[in-house]
Simulated scan of single mutants.
Amino acid sequence: MSFLIGCSSGSQEQATEAEAVSNPNLMFADYENLKLGFTTQNFLAAMPVSLETSKQFIDYAEQQGYAWLELRDPSAELSLEESQEIAAYAQEKGIEVSYAIQKGLLDEDFWPTFEKGLQNAGVFDGPKLIRSLASLSEFASDAAKQGWTPEELNLAVQYADSAAALAKEAGLQYVIENAGEPFFGNDNAYFGVADMFAQVSEQVGWQFDTANPFSVARVHGTVDSVRNYLRENVDNLFYIHLKSAENGQAQEVLGENPLPLPEVLQLLSEQSVSYVAIELQAVDNKEQAFANQEQSLDYLRAQGIVKGS
């Protein structure tokens, strides 16, 4: 994919090149109401977020035939003016954008990041979402921690409700991704993301990661328990990360997952949850990151899930 990686955004040469390599839209073979995209997280270890790289991701999405992308701005480093320029560029290219920060509810810098991110998120055309993690620092700093304490759960619920209310005032939907916390709690020993969703207001939405319950989560859920939860709570789902886990590890390329990806996609289609973003375990080599993206598409094509070149 060197034709994209080395380009400088906005040039006439690039625009001509983009037209030359433009492909038919990537489509789900059996789920025409779903939109295929990717998260820029796949590339951030090699291409940190900036105005230039964000435009390059949009070019890549257009050239490859993706419908949308999740723009990951972990610490809300993009300025409002940069976000507006990126949004205008994406609109010109016909790519929908959803904005995401990479902070957990209990992180010390959650609120300043969220408040800045909220301004950025509002300028993009697309699903009109702002996404964060449920947890991050409290598990990253304690390798023995299995789940939230009752006090942490209460704070997470309060903060999620407050963030959702602010998002609603801004004309956005706040969504939370299941991440390092356990998917389910263990009686009163510790608590997980399902316990949080059971207590938050109806304004708080869910962004499901298909691999995290079986890899990133400190305590892994069983396939049947996650499957049942998904079926019972799909009405609160706004988009998913299509990601694979194997032997307890998130994968750099899509493949089989404990909860089969086609099963998840079928349920999304039935419930008209349209947005699907490919997420891969990030690598710090630019060429390899793009190769992993292409290999993941090849897997989806080989499985008859996606069509288009």
Rank of each mutant, 00 (worst) to 15 (best):
L4D: 02
G6T: 09
G6D: 11
C7K: 10
S9C: 09
G10P: 04
E13R: 11
E17R: 15
E19F: 11
S22L: 14
N23E: 12
P24M: 12
M27F: 09
E32D: 13
N33G: 06
N33E: 07
K35C: 14
G37A: 13
T39A: 15
N42E: 02
A46K: 09
V49F: 00
V49T: 14
L51P: 09
F57Q: 01
D59E: 13
D59F: 09
Q63D: 13
Q63W: 15
Y66N: 06
Y66R: 05
L69I: 15
E70W: 02
R72D: 00
S75R: 03
E77S: 15
L78H: 00
L80N: 06
A88I: 10
Y89I: 06
Q91D: 12
E92L: 13
E92C: 10
K93C: 12
V97C: 10
S98F: 05
S98I: 10
A100F: 00
A100L: 10
G104K: 00
G104P: 04
D107K: 01
D107A: 03
W111C: 00
P112W: 12
E115A: 09
G117Q: 02
L118V: 07
L118N: 02
V123K: 01
F124T: 01
D125C: 08
D125K: 11
P127G: 04
P127M: 08
I130Y: 01
R131E: 02
L133W: 14
A134C: 10
A134E: 00
A134P: 02
S137A: 11
E138C: 12
F139A: 03
A140P: 02
A140S: 10
D142Y: 00
D142M: 05
A143V: 10
A143N: 08
P150T: 09
P150K: 12
L153P: 06
L153G: 08
V157S: 03
D161Q: 04
A165N: 05
K168R: 13
L172Y: 03
Q173H: 04
Y174I: 06
N178K: 00
A179H: 15
E181L: 06
E181G: 14
E181P: 15
G185K: 03
D187E: 15
D187M: 08
F191Y: 15
G192K: 04
A194V: 13
D195L: 07
V200N: 02
S201V: 11
E202Q: 14
Q203T: 08
V204A: 05
W206D: 01
W206F: 15
Q207P: 01
Q207S: 13
F208V: 12
D209Q: 04
D209C: 11
D209T: 07
F214S: 07
S215Y: 04
S215V: 08
R218G: 07
G221P: 05
G221W: 00
V223Y: 00
S225T: 07
V226T: 05
R227F: 03
R227M: 03
R227L: 06
N228D: 15
N228Y: 01
N228W: 01
R231S: 11
R231C: 12
N233A: 12
D235P: 04
N236T: 11
I240R: 01
L242Y: 02
L242D: 02
E246V: 13
L254Y: 08
G255Q: 04
G255H: 05
N257I: 12
L261Y: 11
E263D: 14
Q266E: 14
L268V: 10
E270I: 09
Y275T: 03
E279L: 09
V283T: 10
A289G: 02
E294F: 05
L297M: 08
R301S: 05
A302G: 04
Q303V: 07
G304K: 01
G308L: 09
